[in-house]
């Protein structure tokens, strides 16, 4: 095991126990149409973002920092191909995908035409990326229930 292997869900092995990863949002999102991105592979890169050359979703945070989102099974293969210091934050960040500017306006004060950007969503530090009218929000998993509650409440208010 490498020095930071204990951070990677990808490093689990069967050992006769069949370990099961669970999304921190599983309960909070029950019955909701919000897409859960929590179990997607996520790597934090601290190095030149311009040098990132992988076929994965790269969300720049600063010129020297980015979040790379990928299929969970690709974390191990992508990590050595990324520049600078790379830490597996798959389990650190929960994520959701929601639709519509009206909803986003109710949960964040970000300028929605200048994404991706880091700011607060539902009073929790988050990273927000946009693809058309869909928004991906990544945030510390320990705030998962709170953020989802805020987002679902905002959805309720728009109905």
């Amino acid at each position: 095991m490498n020095e930071l292997a204990f951070l990677s869900p990808d490093d689990a092995q069967d050992d006769g126990f069949a370990p099961r990863a669970a999304s921190p949002l599983a309960r909070a999102l029950a019955g909701s149409e919000i897409v859960d991105l929590s179990l997607r592979g996520k790597l934090e890169v601290r190095g030149s973002v311009d040098e990132i050359d992988v076929d994965a979703d790269v969300i720049p945070i600063t010129p020297e920092r980015a979040l790379v989102v990928c299929d969970p099974g690709r974390v191990g293969t992508l990590r050595p191909r990324l520049p600078g210091l790379v830490v597996d934050v798959t389990a650190a960040l929960a994520g959701i995908e929601v639709e519509g500017e009206p909803l986003m306006r109710r949960v964040t004060d970000l300028a929605l035409d200048r994404l991706p950007a880091a700011a607060k969503v539902g009073d929790v530090a988050a990273l927000v990326a946009r693809d058309g009218n869909r928004f991906r929000i990544f945030f510390p998993q320990e705030y998962g229930d709170s953020v989802v509650a805020t987002v679902r409440d905002a959805q309720e208010g728009l109905r």
Binding site: P24, D145, T150
Partner: peptide
């Protein structure tokens, strides 16, 4: 407003 108070919960909370 809505008065949401963010709380941290561990992954074993439930």
């Amino acid at each position: 407003g809505r008065g949401h108070e963010p709380a941290k919960r561990t992954s074993i909370h439930h």
